[in-house]
Structures are given as C-alpha cells and as structure tokens.
Amino acid sequence: MWPSGGIIDTAMPDYFGLTEYFTKVLHGKSYGGQTDLARYDTYYYQEEAAMIMMEDICKSYHVAKRTGGFKEACRTLFHREYETIRALDHVSFTIEDGEMVGYIGPNGAGKSSTIKILSGILTPEEGTCTVDGKVPWKDRVSYVKDIGVVFGQRTQLWWDVPVIDSYELLKDIYKIPKETYHNHLEELVSLLNLGELLKTPARQLSLGQRMRCEIAASLLHGPKLLFLDEPTIGLDAVSKLAVREFILRQNRDHGTTVILTTHDMQDIEALTHRIILIGKGRVLMDGNLNQIKRGTGSIDETVAELYRSYEIAEVGS
C-alpha cells in the first residue's frame, strides 16, 4: 500500500514548500540524482509485485501538419510535412494492488495514451510495463480478461436493445460461468440500483442511468483492474454521487485496483488519495492531494495553480 504522507515530486521546484514531503523518489534513475533511499524503494516495490509497473514508457506519433491558408493547402496537395509528437516521455510509476489512483492532466497531456498502453490497445516504443505480472500488449486475449475499461464518452451498450441483452452478450464474450455471472449481476444491480433499467433499451436511458449500466457492464467479469475514463462527465449531482460511492465500495469490498482519469477534481477528492499528474508526456507529480493544498483554495484552484506552475495549462495565466 502507498505509504501515507508521501509525495513524490520529480520535476517540481520547491514551489509549494514541500521539501519535507520528499520522503520517497520512485524510479530515480530517469531523472538522475538518485539517492540510496530511491534505490531502496525501487527494490521494495518490485518485491511487493505491484499491480502496475510502468517504467520509462515512451510513445510518439507522426502527425501530418495541417495548415490554414489557401495557398498552403494547395501545396500540401502534393507534399505534406509530418511532425513527431512525443505523447509519452519516459513515464514511470507503480501502482499497488487495491490502490485507487487519479490520473490527471490537461487535454493532450498523454492520459489516454497511457490508458491505451495499460489496456493493451497501444504498444509503446520504449520502456517496460507489467500489469498483474503480464505485459499488456503481448497475448492480448489472455491479458484483457482481467481488466475492465469504461470509456466515459463512448458506450459499450447496444443502443436499441434492453441493457440486459448487452450483459448477456458480455457474458458470452468473457465466457463468464453462469453462477459467477448471476452473482455479479445481482450484486451490481442492487448496488447500482439497476433493477428497472435492465429492461430498458440503452437509447432511452438518461446519461446518469447509462453510466451506471456502463460501469456494471465493465465489472460483470470481475476484473482485478478497472480503468475509468471520465466516469462522471456530464452527470447530474445525484448520479455523480452514486457513481463515486459505488466506485469506493467496489474498491473497498473487492479490492479492485482503480485508475481514474477525470477533469472533475471533486472525483479525485472524493475517491483517491494519490494523484499522478501528467503534462506534455511526463509525470510531473505523483503524490497525495491533501498535501499540495494550500490554505483555503478550492481543489480546482489548487490544480489550476499546479498546471500553471508546470506551464502545462492550455489557457495562459
């Protein structure tokens, strides 16, 4: 488990006056300045066989330059320039079994690339990564059996048929034994209050109802690891609370490891102790939210301050 009171800050200057929190430095080797303590920690975590170990992961994309002007556009008809964008630049972190981690950063910071790598969709160029002892991008089928993914903005429910039909399909896809399926379903239905919803076609559900059904769909097979990509986006206050409460419970009762990406800082505040801040493809901060809070500022203000201090904010300050 994550030691309490630890904040790991690899790149930040002593901005918040947090020197006292530098109790641990993970993967010191990427950034030099190794301490004995850091070496000890790396060793320590490996021995614990963490749920997720990501080390020096790099990923870049080739993107065609799109230009504005008319003349420029004509020229690109015959010749197009490409640029390389470094989406992930030596990203390293470790997440323990049963931990709940908020993965935050502005748009385009590299969050979704990380999630894609962790869920086996994308293969990185450099670096190593093991999740539950397996390499995500090797042997896809056997790896993805044990993970669940909720893409907040895309639905996995079939639009025109009752939700239960989508679940039955998932049962076949994951080859969930009958009994396990019924147990899981029963529990999810009661915790997420899905009762009536199961018979409703997904297209008739409200956003909040749909998100609850979505989350249940990702947990039917009882994954050890759950990725939640913006699970509360667009939800009303009641639904948000219900979703948060459920996630907490799932983590507490089943020890499901949860990685949460979100722009809603209240999600983070309610759910996670640890946050990993990523910006421009680098892990900028890895630590406990409470400790970066200064005075009475709201959590949004705190995070905005953080973004600005790292110069990763999209809007100039």
């Binding site: 869920s119 969709i121 896809r140 993970i147 893409f151 895309r154 896809i173």
Partner: peptide
C-alpha cells in the same frame, strides 16, 4: 474508437 473496445475484449 469502437475498435479500441474490441481490443480490450478477450475474443
């Protein structure tokens, strides 16, 4: 992005 969903399923 539906293909990403396909990729995270064990079939």
């Amino acid at each position: 992005g539906e293909f990403d969903r396909v990729l995270v399923r064990p079939r």
